[in-house]
Amino acid sequence: MATTRSRTTRERLLAAAREEFAAHGIAGARVDRIAAAAGVNKERIYANFGSKEALFQAVVTQAMAEHADGIGLPEGDLAEYVGRLYDFHRRHPTLLRLMLWEALHYGDRPFDSSSRQPSYRKKVEALAEALGRPADHHTAATLMVLIGLACWAHTMPQLARFLLEGESAETRHQLMRAQVVEFARRTLSTGQPGTASVDQRD
């Protein structure tokens, strides 16, 4: 019974923290607001997670696991994989907000990347197999571009509104989804996307 209660408390804290961090970021989030939203004493946060930063990491890890379950690996129809990414972030906007706050707070060195790195490596390997080429940095860069295609309109919704002036929100989403999928399809159909050479001279 105690284990079930503890699990329920942890789940409530994670749900409340996700909303708080998505709205206010790491620095702006308040543990007392998280505890109040979860209906527990704020000492439960430290008992379950140890610190606010560790709680943020747990929230991101949970959100990324849901993302992986909902999207799957980049295989099969890769253009539709981009479409699935677009759809996921439209339905679940908090993940992008969490990652933007993480980038603002930590730059390119998040609090704990060790638990997430293997999942990205697996995605690069799946994309490499789908494209029939090595799982190297060129393939990783291609994956980054595909993710960017799917996410940018959700990251900058005001830009989509300016550019697609006069269209309803639903029409904007339909237009953007169709465009990113078609763009990905045309790019990937060229044979060797993402193989540009890099001049490493200073």
Rank of each mutant, 00 (worst) to 15 (best):
L164K: 07
S168R: 12
F183Q: 13
A169N: 11
A160C: 05
A184C: 02
M156I: 14
A196T: 12
E165S: 06
G194D: 03
L163A: 09
Q192R: 09
A178D: 09
E170C: 04
R185G: 00
L188Q: 00
C151L: 12
A184L: 01
R161V: 00
E170Q: 11
S168H: 12
Q158N: 11
S189H: 09
T195P: 03
E182K: 08
E182I: 05
A184K: 12
V180Y: 02
L159Y: 03
R186V: 15
R177P: 02
M156H: 15
Q158K: 06
A160D: 04
E167Y: 06
A160Q: 09
Q174L: 15
Q158H: 10
S189D: 14
L163P: 03
A153N: 07
T190Q: 14
R185Q: 03
T155C: 08
H173T: 10
A169F: 11
T187P: 01
L164S: 05
R186E: 11
V180G: 00
M176E: 08
E182N: 02
L163F: 13
A153V: 13
A178W: 07
P157D: 02
S189P: 02
R161F: 09
S189R: 08
S168F: 08
E182A: 02
H173V: 09
G194P: 06
A184S: 13
F162Q: 10
M176D: 07
G191V: 00
L159H: 09
C151W: 10
Q192H: 14
Q174M: 01
E167C: 05
H154W: 02
E167F: 08
L163D: 06
S168Y: 03
T155I: 15
T195M: 07
T190V: 15
T155A: 15
A178M: 05
A169W: 13
E182S: 07
G191F: 00
F183I: 14
R186C: 03
L163V: 15
A196S: 06
Q179E: 14
T171M: 12
G191D: 04
M176I: 11
L164F: 03
Q179C: 10
A196F: 06
V180D: 00
E182C: 03
E182D: 13
C151E: 15
E167Q: 10
Q158Y: 12
E165M: 05
C151H: 14
L175A: 10
T190D: 09
L163N: 08
R177C: 02
H154E: 12
S168P: 01
R161L: 11
Q179Y: 14
M176C: 09
T190F: 08
A184W: 00
E167V: 08
P193F: 08
R185F: 01
V180T: 10
R161Q: 09
T155K: 07
V181G: 00
C151S: 09
A160H: 06
A196D: 10
F162D: 13
P193E: 02
R177I: 06
E165L: 09
V181S: 04
E170G: 05
A169G: 01
R172A: 04
T155L: 15
P157H: 07
R186G: 08
R172N: 05
L159Q: 13
F162P: 02
H154F: 00
F162K: 10
E170N: 05
V181W: 05
T195Y: 02
M156L: 15
A196R: 12
A178N: 08
Q179H: 15
Q174I: 14
P157R: 11
A196C: 07
A196K: 07
V181C: 01
S168A: 07
T187R: 06
S189M: 10
L175G: 06
F162M: 14
T190P: 04
E167S: 04
G191N: 00
